[in-house]
Amino acid sequence: MSIEVRNVNKQFGAFRALNDINLDIHSGELVALLGPSGCGKTTLLRIIAGLETPDSGSIVFHGEDVSTRDVRDRNVGFVFQHYALFRHMTIFDNVAFGLRMKPKSERPDEATIARRVKELLEMVQLDWLGDRYPEQLSGGQRQRIALARALAVEPKILLLDEPFGALDAKVRKELRRWLARLHEEINLTSVFVTHDQEEAMEVADRIVVMNKGVIEQIGSPAEVYEHPANPFVYHFLGDANRLYMGEEHHILFRPHEISLSRNAADEHRPAEVRDIRPLGAITRVTLKVDGQEEPIEAEVAKDDASLVDLARGQTLYFKPKAGVPAHLS
């Protein structure tokens, strides 16, 4: 089911949360709303769900305007950052909730509900937790239960608000890969909100970069990373080095877009090594360049020739590689 957002505006008092937002999400897509906190991404997600009413503009599902439709009639699955599981119900009852709340004519009988809940719990690989309570589960388990609960009513659209935000780094990585696979398996249109560019790049088909209530750029992960529309997108999608080429003029380049050499070489500038950090597959070298306060960070493969016996205080020669987006500065 496709989602269209048309000229949506939202104001909270004097704060403009969303400023004329237009967005098309295709059926079956997995889209990330990416931006810093306060950029309006969660508000947009809540408006799509119907939890928040826009001041103007409309939301269209599959060609049908749903702006005036109540939350409960939009049939969207929603996953909260802090899970929002019903604390007084068992895991089984949590997942069964949506089915049990259906009007009598549509409500399946208890045996069907039990079967369906079991399927869902198996899908999230937690079928052995049915009679526990939410407080007895870990964060990662709770989030998977929240997902199973949202999917129980077979929504056509799945909305996730910072779904992995409250989890630790390792669980986070596992869960987001699992979510991407799940999205492939069940035919859903999914939108998730995140402030973590790595998460957006790893999971999403398309990324919507937002800032201060407006959309800065929409594109595939490769597009927004390789061809950022403006300095904000460039900075938000990864670390950036600023290198001054004279009084006013400077260029931007990413830490890995660099060539290092121990000896003076063509077009390479000298710099003093301030810090060397092995980070696993790559090593980060912090360089101090004459004539600017801001250090330069270089990330190179850990077996890079320039790193052999390198120590702090030594001189290295560096050159930003081609593809420097100087036009952005």
Binding site: F78, A84, F97, G98, A152
Partner: peptide, 19 residues
């Protein structure tokens, strides 16, 4: 949030309140 979750899962106002 729990109330919102209940609404999203199709509960009516009364169902949300009682359950």
């Amino acid at each position: 949030q729990e109330e919102e979750a209940a609404r999203l899962l199709g509960a009516s106002g009364w169902q949300m309140f009682w359950h």
